[in-house]
């Protein structure tokens, strides 16, 4: 894996259109992650902002947030409201177990030169479709660069005891597979997560974890880790709190006609005091 991972990600954010032109952090933040009782609701905030978790940059687009329920059924977000800098929405928890609240996209993107002008697909605000790709991207062009890219952003909440049904990987893009359950994290214990790229261990994936409250300290105090052969990373937390997790992966095992494969994974996880 190469170190020059930032540039394609910045461009990726540009072409995907749903984010800012810069590589700003985006997140979906639950108010609570472990709940007891019956028929509960959880409120979420979602925004694009480098300050963890202070919504002060861009609301972003979160109308496509999906919910996977503890039995694998599709749920939905309710009461979505978009403010200047953030979105808020609710999810109702009627079933016991773990809910995954997420957005995911997989596709190809391309950049090339045409008549001396820079072109790209998908364009700003445009969604990738195989048809659109076939129609818009030339087979040959100057500086043609085709990338297979995936991006997933998620968080988890659990009513009652956690389970894994909603966490089954799809085999597409960069995904987290729990070794330690993401709603069973405690400050004094290590946590292990496995990452898959298109269903295979994402060896070399680079993880960064930052605890909330950066505004009240002078350093980001990020935790970094690189996935081993099995795609696993083991983290020692910097105390209790909600963490912003970002994982980046890149290799050249792309689906044709792409020559590069990139995966981005973002999660918000809550670590409780012991």
């Amino acid at each position: 894996m190469k170190k020059t991972i930032l540039k394609p990600l910045i461009l990726g954010a540009m072409v995907l259109g749903s984010l800012s032109a810069e590589a700003h952090r985006a997140w979906i933040l639950p108010q609570e992650t472990q709940l007891s009782g019956e028929d509960r609701w959880v409120g979420f905030e979602a925004a694009v902002s480098n300050d963890i978790f202070v919504a002060n940059y861009h609301a972003g687009f979160f109308g496509n947030v999906e919910v996977a329920q503890p039995d694998g059924e599709k749920g939905s977000i309710e009461n979505l409201h978009t403010g200047k800098y953030r979105n808020v929405f609710d999810v109702q928890l009627e079933k016991e177990g773990t809910y995954k609240v997420f957005t995911a996209s997989n596709g190809m993107r391309a950049m090339w030169q045409e008549d001396g002008k820079r072109r790209m697909y998908p364009g700003r605000g445009e969604q990738y479709t195989p048809e659109g790709f076939a129609k818009n991207v030339p087979e040959k062009a100057d500086n043609l660069r085709v990338m297979q890219s995936s991006r997933r952003m998620e968080t988890f909440v659990t009513l009652g005891a956690p389970n894994d049904t909603a966490l089954q990987p799809t085999g597409q893009g960069l995904e987290l597979v729990p070794v330690t359950h993401p709603n069973d994290l405690y400050a004094g214990e290590k946590a292990t997560f496995k990452f898959l790229i298109d269903g295979e261990p994402a060896e070399g994936a680079e993880l960064t974890a930052i605890r909330e409250g950066t505004r009240y300290r002078n350093q980001q105090n990020e935790i970094t880790a690189v996935a081993n052969k099995k795609g696993e990373v083991t983290l020692t937390w910097n105390g209790a709190g909600r963490y912003f997790i970002e994982v980046e992966y890149k290799d050249d095992k792309a689906k044709k006609p792409a020559t590069e494969r990139t995966g981005a994974y973002i999660a918000v996880l809550e670590v409780l005091p012991d």
């Binding site: 472990q34 709940l35 007891s36 509960r40």
Partner: peptide, 21 residues
């Protein structure tokens, strides 16, 4: 409506070890 169960999880270790099941 069993509203009191809402705070059972605040007994964090108990909730984790046994309560939630």
């Amino acid at each position: 409506n069993a509203e009191g169960e809402k705070w059972l999880k605040d007994m964090r270790q108990w909730w984790r070890r046994i309560g939630r099941t």
